[in-house]
Amino acid sequence: MTGATAVERAELLETARELARRELVPRAAALDAGEQDVLATCWRQLAEIGLDRALLAEEHGGSGLSVSDLLAAIEELAAGEGGIALCVLLANAALATLPSEHAAAIPGGARWALVPVRSGAEATVSDGRLEGSVASALGAYGTEGVVFAVQGDRPASIAVAAGTPGLELARDEAQMGLRAAPAASIGLTGIDAHADLTQSDGASAPADAGGVLALLRAGTAAIARGIARRAYGMALEYAKARRQGGVAIIEHDAVSEMLAAMAVRLSCPLPAAAGAAAALAAKVAASDAAVASTTDAVQVFGGTGYMRETGIEKLMRDAKYCQLFPEPNWVAQDELMRLACD
């Protein structure tokens, strides 16, 4: 993964920004409502600009972007729709986990998702078989395949194509946030954890669990930041237009202080997401900031913000899920301290 030149990077970000503005923002409500055909339409457009396999080398049919390029693009997408940005992150994380030749064998435009799994608590690999159940795996529903990143003493990555016997995916209807990345409750019964993806419907690969999780955390930080940016933009615009007490509400300190706090949070750079500890810190900081900013944004909108029509309350729900994925922030902080003590 060589990464793009500065010019290519700028072009990529502009393309992602434009796609978010033109295609994702108008479809955000439909995506939030779980409309799968709208998700498919958006996904096709993302595949056309190569964001579905951004990290894969060009010789393997990918875009050959660096992780930092991908994270920048994800932030731009999230400023349009957070769930779609998560789909991009999960697809790229899934492919990054597989050996390049296996990843290259997955048809272009196919949506796959990475699902982190705790060994023992959620699933076990024994005698070459994957068994267990995973609740609310974000982005896994409706995919063409899932890569299970099994964490624990014996980490492994196991790719399973949709439709494989023993793989049950049920939509998690209660999912509150990032609904454009539909969550699934997954049942795993006797999944072959040895088979070669190019030969059949499953593949295993030596896992770099730390690297994959770091990517998920850094990507979640980018999504959170994109969401916070959108919330700030919408709240600022509304505060200039809405009048109470005879003046625009931005002239009331009670409102301008909330907006200033949002701007301050956005002005603080995220820790460079290189390395496990930095990714953890970035994820915690960005998701906490996004929850604070989106909650304040709803407050700026007042009663209107609490209604679905403005789309601002959706940002609050999406931001909350960034605090919980790929693990709750308190668990992430635990992990951060464990790394600090190692």
Binding site: E122, A135, L138, A183, K320, L324, P328, W330, V331
Partner: peptide, 14 residues
Amino acid sequence: ALELVGLRAGPVRA
């Protein structure tokens, strides 16, 4: 409370 239970807590999460 939501942060403590996380995404995979089952019915209590909803």
